[in-house]
Design a protein around this nucleic acid. Structure first.
Length: 944
RNA sequence: GCGGAUGUGGUGAAAUUGGUAGACACGCUAGACUUAGGAUCUAGUGCCGAGAGGUGUGCGGGUUCGAGUCCCUCCAUCCGCACCA
């Protein structure tokens, strides 16, 4: 019997679906294991071969863990809210729910063909009301929480209100920007609106006027991680800064825990560093500089101005953040961001116009221009001076757009001798540079190292830099002019989107106060609208909905924004544990049982988005007692991208002759993308090419000497327009799912970016055919009951060990090869022993599950479908080691043994075997060896 | 500029605590066989050399009996961040 993959695969797909073979039990005596893939956004283009790469890896691991006796949770679902469906809806008028449904069906079809062991009973879709009910519910919990720095966790807002009612806010240490102090009596005297506004300053989900990334082309705001180089991640449209009233999430409250938590998870350093960078922790101090009134006199006098109105700024304080308090005596000027609120106040009359002009110029620059302009040093003196807190010296105050309004305090103390940007600024504007480092030359550049000794700095002189930092902070705190402080670059996450296809907020407004919709009315379903566009007066699309279109409506108006894409994907891994629960987003019991995701596989592009937000929500839900772990993903593997390999034909100037690759040299040719389905191993199917498009119908060719046309190729991203998209479907049809699965694993290291290339797929396919021949010859079963040969046992156990090692260490690069070697060796040995083949089939089951099931039941006579529940073969090291001859060698004056050994791979076992050899015993004369070096399979050096 | 990764045949790549570099597969060469199948089988295939032999893991050093692997300098490519005080 030949290897009939299409029949076999169809049969087993059906069997698994009918028997729910991969259903995960919520209660089991087996240990649990949770293998998760990043769920896909179901785009209209369908899956290409890059998508399943990670799914195949995780499926192999999930199946392996089942063989190892684990109760495995391996679910799949869809991140089905999103921009493309909405934009398609805007163009066509089709409801996004409809296109999303169609796309999901297509995805499911494609996924099913690859033979994944997902438990489809647990499927989730973020756009399903039964799912987003819980997205809305979690939003409510976040809204109803504040971050208590004393307990270092999120707590219910009621505890804060209770505190306000009894003591006001004086004793509260919370994450908030709110600085006013009020008493209990004052609190009780506030109106509902005033109380609501104050609580808003504490809530973890809050409404505030924020500078946001506004993308006019998309008509919505974007989160920082959705903006790349000043352009939108989706579509690449320009993004500008705009002040808007928006929902935000106080993720900054978790900044420190998001950093420390990284030490408890097994992720790559690359991803951890990306997150650390993004959070951007800096330790230092904040210091207040008093703006000098007398200095202002000087400026005023010299300007000979008579406008006394502008002179009232004396006593203003500029607060700066610095990571180098040790260099405070090196301050020779200060710089404020152009948007800094004190700029108008302190600017003297003389400089008013120049400052205004500078501010205007800065505001006209887009984020992108500002970034591109890094090397252009610009700034403007304000005429004001600040007083140095220790020396009392007058320090000129400038504004400059290299200082960002949104980081720290929006102002810096400039130390040109110790900071390159300050040095450049000072040099450019000819501001004096004071050197406070002992024996350091700063004439060419700033000294930015944190090694050395401080000089010329009053009480800091003579101290090493690191010590000076501590001393400086202590002194600053003592004088009450500042304090030690840690800053984070991470910004709070904007949570509103002006779009239709997202979760509605469970929020309504009455008297301009936002209220939460009662749980009983959740989910707040998306209302129907006539168009998926903003209203004429710029309200989000949901504002178009008639009151009657809302299934639930309360107050004067509903919240018309929707939630961002990351809302639904920030807890889906929890929902899989209990996807049908209508009373809770997940029951405590099930969350406790399934616990963390043991292995998470997905792309690294989510490093600063999804992965950060999911960790944030997980920590929040942990704080509030809904789950008992505060990191969602214990171990993560990031699969690399698969690039397309485009094929080209080369047209000569005459517009109709196409010249083959090797003969185009030195000729004027136009490369033209040709559909890769017309090309096999770079050979063009000429007839198919002529039929492909009318303009090629009369094409003429200059061929290779063997009469073929060879195409050129180039590696690019897969895209329809480059005709280089390889869908898994065609390959499954030609070679079968098992071949595709093994081939994708055979391609190279999982984590690596690599071009797609089908050149080697025959090799993998031939492996399966060869495997078949161990069982069948001329259509007859040739499996025997004869005992296995020693050789065959050795091959088997070598393979068991290799497969086991590769999967436990999780490097999907060699394991398929190990099975190939195994089958090659068994073929050479003419081994048809049932004893051996049974074990081989189990080893194969995670990789090529359809073939394994077929051989297991049809050739080996086991009950159908049981290969997935058979224990993984047990490795027996004794099968590998055989004693051999040992002979002494003298080398470089040191005595050692060289022993020739049979091929094995475990140095330890060989070591033991060598020491047990009579020859070795004799040679050592009862002494222990000083050093024993084993080259697996080859040579042993024993130093005596 | 900062951070992370990667450099091995014609190609994709292996190489476990440092131990025969190139497993396995593609491709290629020669041959066999055939109910012509995306077959199968045999032999060969890093480079130089007719051969013995020499040489070889981005470059240059170092440690070691022994280095693709460890250490140092440099180079190239890819990814992320980027005026974050």
């Amino acid at each position: 019997m030949e290897y009939q993959f299409s029949e076999i695969e169809k049969k087993w797909r059906q069997f698994w679906a009918d028997h729910k073979t991969f259903k995960a039990e919520d209660n089991s005596s087996k240990p649990k294991y949770y293998v998760l893939d990043m769920f896909p956004y179901p785009s209209g283009a369908g899956l290409h071969v890059g998508h399943p790469l990670g799914y195949i890896a995780s499926d192999i691991y999930a199946r392996y863990k089942r063989l190892r006796g684990y109760n495995v949770l391996h679910p799949m679902g869809y991140d089905s809210f999103g921009l493309p469906a909405e934009q398609y809806a805007i163009q066509t008028g089709q409801h996004p729910a409809l296109t999303t449904e169609q796309n999901i069906n297509r995805y499911r079809d494609q996924l099913d063909k690859i033979g994944f062991s997902f438990d489809w009973d647990r499927e989730v879709r973020t756009s399903d009301p039964g799912y987003y009910k819980w997205t809305q519910w979690i939003f409510k919990q976040i809204f109803n929480s504040w971050y208590n720095l004393k307990s270092d966790k999120a707590e219910d807002i009621s505890t804060l209100i209770a505190a306000f009612e009894s003591n006001g806010n004086a004793g509260i240490t919370a994450v908030t920007e709110f600085a006013e102090i009020f008493t209990a009596d004052q609190w009780k005297g506030y109106s509902e609106k005033e109380q609501s506004d104050i609580l808003m300053e504490y809530r973890l989900a809050y409404l505030a006027d924020s500078w946001v990334n506004w993308c006019p082309a998309l008509g919505t705001v974007l989160a920082n991680d959705e903006v790349i180089n000043g352009l939108s991640e989706r579509g690449g449209h320009p993004v500008e800064q705009k002040l808007m009233r928006q929902w935000s999430m106080r993720i900054k409250a978790y900044a420190e825990r998001l950093i420390t938590g990284l030490d408890t998870v097994d992720w790559t350093d690359a991803i951890k560093d990306m997150q650390r960078n993004w959070i951007g922790k800096s330790v230092g101090a904040s210091v207040k500089f008093v703006v000098s009134s007398s200095a202002e006199e000087v400026a005023f006098d010299s300007a000979q101005s008579t406008n006394n109105e502008l002179r009232r700024s004396s006593g203003a304080e500029i607060e700066v953040f610095t990571t180098r308090p040790d260099t405070i005596f090196g301050v020779s000027f200060m710089v404020l961001a152009p948007e800094h609120p004190l700029v108008n106040e302190i600017t003297t009359a003389e400089y008013k116009d120049a400052v205004e002009a500078y501010k205007t110029a800065a505001s006209l620059k887009s984020e992108r221009d500002r970034q591109a302009d890094v090397k252009n040093i610009t700034g403007q003196f304000t005429g004001a001076y600040a007083l140095h807190p220790f020396s009392g010296e007058k320090i000129p105050v400038w504004i400059g757009d290299y200082v960002l309004a949104s980081y720290g305090t929006g102002a810096v103390m400039a130390v040109p001798c110790g900071d390159q940007r300050d040095w450049d600024f000072a040099t450019h504007f000819k501001i004096p540079i004071k050197n406070i480092f002992e024996n350091v030359d700063i004439s060419e550049a700033a000294y930015v190292e944190k090694e050395g000794t401080i000089a010329d700095s009053d009480f800091l002189s003579g101290l090493p830099i690191k010590q000076a930092m501590t001393v400086a902070i202590a002194k600053i705190e003592e004088l009450g002019i500042g304090k030690g402080k840690t800053n984070y670059r991470l910004r709070d996450a904007i949570f509103s989107r002006q779009r239709y296809w997202g979760e509605p907020f469970p929020v309504y407004y009455k008297n301009d106060i936002p209220y939460l919709v009662d749980d009983a009315h959740l989910p707040i379903e998306l209302p129907e609208v006539d168009k998926y566009l903003p209203t004429e007066d710029g309200e989000p699309p949901l504002a178009r909905a008639e009151k009657s279109a809302w299934k639930y409506f309360e107050g004067e108006r509903m919240e018309y924004n929707t939630m961002p894409g990351w809302a639904g994907s920030s807890f889906y891994f929890l929902r899989y544990m209990d996807p049908k629960n209508d009373h809770e987003f997940v029951s405590k019991e099930k969350a406790d049982y399934w616990n963390q995701v043991d292995l998470y596989i997905g792309g690294s592009e989510h490093a600063t988005g999804h992965l950060l937000y999911s960790r944030f929500w997980c920590k929040f839900l942990y704080d509030r007692g809904y789950i008992s772990f505060d990191e969602p993903f214990k171990k993560m593997i990031n699969q690399g991208m698969i690039l397309g390999r485009s094929s080209f034909v080369y047209r000569l100037e005459d517009n109709k002759t196409y010249i083959t690759f090797s003969k185009k040299e030195g000729k004027q040719v136009v490369p033209i993308h040709v559909d890769i389905s017309l090309v096999d191993n770079d050979k063009l199917d000429i007839e198919a090419f002529k039929a492909w498009r009318p303009e090629f119908a009369n094409a003429e060719f200059i061929l290779e000497d063997d009469g073929t046309y060879i195409c050129g190729s180039e590696v690019e991203k897969m895209s329809k327009s480059k005709f280089n998209v390889q869908t898994p479907d065609e390959l499954v049809e030609r070679f079968g799912a098992d071949t595709l699965r093994m081939y994708e694993m055979f391609l190279g290291p999982l984590e690596q970016t690599k071009p797609w290339d089908t050149k080697g797929i025959n090799g993998v396919h031939n492996f399966l055919r060869k495997l078949w021949r161990l069982f069948y010859e001329n259509g007859n079963l040739i499996v025997t009951d004869a005992p296995a040969s020693k050789e065959a046992l050795k091959t088997l156990h070598k393979t068991i060990k290799k497969v086991e090692d590769d999967l436990e260490r999780f490097s999907f690069n060699t394991n398929v090869s190990n099975l190939m070697i195994c089958v090659n060796e068994l073929t050479d040995q003419k081994c048809h022993s049932k004893e051996i083949l049974e074990q081989v089939v189990i080893l194969l089951a995670p990789y090529a599950p359809h073939a394994a099931e077929e051989l297991w039941s049809e050739a080996l006579g086991h009950p159908a479908g049981t290969v997935s529940t058979t224990p993984f073969p047990k490795f027996n090291p004794e099968m590998l080691v055989e004693a051999n001859t040992v002979y002494p060698v003298s080398f470089n004056g040191k005595m050692r043994f060289n022993a020739e050994l049979p091929t094995t791979f475990s140095a330890k076992e060989v070591e033991e075997a060598v020491l047990a050899m009579p020859e070795a015993q004799k040679w050592l004369e009862g002494k222990a060896p000083k050093k024993l070096i084993v080259v697996p399979g080859r040579i042993v050096n024993i130093v005596v």
